[in-house]
C-alpha cells in the first residue's frame, strides 16, 4: 500500500471521527461513542503506519520538512488524546482534537513533502532528540488549549454569564488537573529531548539549548507553584498558555535564524 493511500485513509478516518463527534456535540454529548473512538484509534494506527513508511522512505525520523513536522505534531496530539484519559476526551477540547488533527494533516499537503538533504549528520540520537522534543510540543500544546478552556470557564463563572456550549466543560478543578498533567507529561518529554540533545553528533546549539532549558525551568517552577497552592488555577492556566506561546516563538526564531526547519526543534 502506498504512503499516499495510508495518509488519505488516516485523514478519512479522522474525518469520520470528527463528524461523529460534532454530531454528538449537537446533543450535548461529549463522551465519544464506541464507533467514534474506534474510528479515532483506527485513524491513529493508520497515521502511525504512515509515519513509519515515511521514516523508511527518508531513512530517518520524519521531522525534517514543514509537512513532516505538521504530520508529526498532529500525531502527538492524537496520541495525547488517547493517553491523557477521559477527563480530556469527554470535553469540548477533546471533541475538537479529531478535526484539528485532520486539518493539520490536510494543511501539511500545502508544503512539499520531499525531504531535502539532511543539514546535519543523520543519526538515531538526532532523530530521538527531535521526536521527543516534538512530542513535548504536542503535550504542552494541549496543556495550552486546556489552559485556554480553563480561562474561558473561569471567566464565565466570574462574569456570571453561561453559554450553553461551555456549560458542558468539566469543572475548573478537572481542567486544572488535566492542564497540570499535560504540563508534567510535556516536561518529562522535554527532559528527554534536552538530555538526548547532548548526545547528538556535532554537539549542541548553545543558544537553543539555553532557551529550551529556561523553558523547562519555567514550566517546572509553574508546576511546583501550582502543586503547593502558591498560585491560583487561573494564573497557572494563563501562564501555561503564555509559556507555550513563548516556546513556539523561540522555535520559529531559531528556525528562521537557521534558514529553515533543519533538524527540528
Amino acid at each position: 500500500m502506498s504512503g499516499g493511500l495510508v495518509f488519505s485513509a488516516a485523514v478519512a478516518a479522522y474525518a469520520v471521527a470528527s463528524a461523529m463527534g460534532l454530531y454528538r456535540m449537537r446533543s450535548r454529548l461529549f463522551r465519544p461513542g464506541v464507533v467514534q473512538f474506534a474510528a479515532f484509534v483506527g485513524a491513529l494506527a493508520l497515521h502511525t503506519w504512515y509515519l513509519m513508511m515515511r521514516g523508511a522512505e527518508v531513512r530517518r525520523c520524519p521531522v525534517t520538512t514543514p509537512a513532516d513536522i505538521m504530520v508529526f505534531v498532529a500525531w502527538s496530539l492524537a496520541v495525547a488524546y488517547v493517553v491523557v484519559g477521559p477527563v480530556y476526551r469527554f470535553t469540548i477540547p477533546g471533541v475538537l482534537t479529531a478535526p484539528l488533527v485532520a486539518l493539520l494533516l490536510l494543511a501539511s499537503l500545502a508544503f512539499p513533502s520531499v525531504a531535502g538533504p539532511a543539514k546535519g549528520e543523520v543519526s538515531a540520537a538526532v532523530e530521538f532528540h527531535a521526536s521527543s522534543s516534538l512530542l513535548a510540543y504536542g503535550a504542552l500544546g494541549l496543556a495550552c488549549v486546556t489552559g485556554l478552556f480553563y480561562l474561558i470557564h473561569d471567566h464565565c463563572i466570574r462574569a456570571k454569564r453561561f453559554q450553553a456550549w461551555f456549560d458542558n466543560l468539566p469543572s475548573l478543578h478537572e481542567l486544572g488537573r488535566v492542564n497540570r498533567d499535560l504540563m508534567l507529561y510535556g516536561l518529562g518529554l522535554m527532559s528527554v529531548g534536552i538530555i538526548s540533545g547532548f548526545f547528538t553528533p556535532g554537539g549542541v546549539n548553545a543558544a537553543k539549548t539555553i532557551s529550551f532549558v529556561m523553558m523547562w525551568a519555567l514550566y517546572a517552577a509553574l508546576l511546583l507553584a501550582s502543586a503547593t497552592d502558591r498560585i491560583s488555577g487561573r494564573r497557572t492556566a494563563l501562564l501555561s498558555s503564555l509559556l507555550f506561546a513563548a516556546m513556539i516563538l523561540s522555535f520559529w526564531t531559531f528556525s528562521l535564524a537557521r534558514g529553515g526547519m533543519g533538524q527540528g526543534p
Partner: peptide, 18 residues
C-alpha cells in the same frame, strides 16, 4: 440548569470543584 437558588448554588459549586 437548576431553577431554585439552592440548586443553582450546587451547580456552581460543581462547576468549580467537580
Amino acid at each position: 440548569g437548576g431553577v431554585s437558588v439552592a440548586a443553582v448554588a450546587v451547580e456552581l459549586a460543581e462547576k468549580i470543584f467537580g
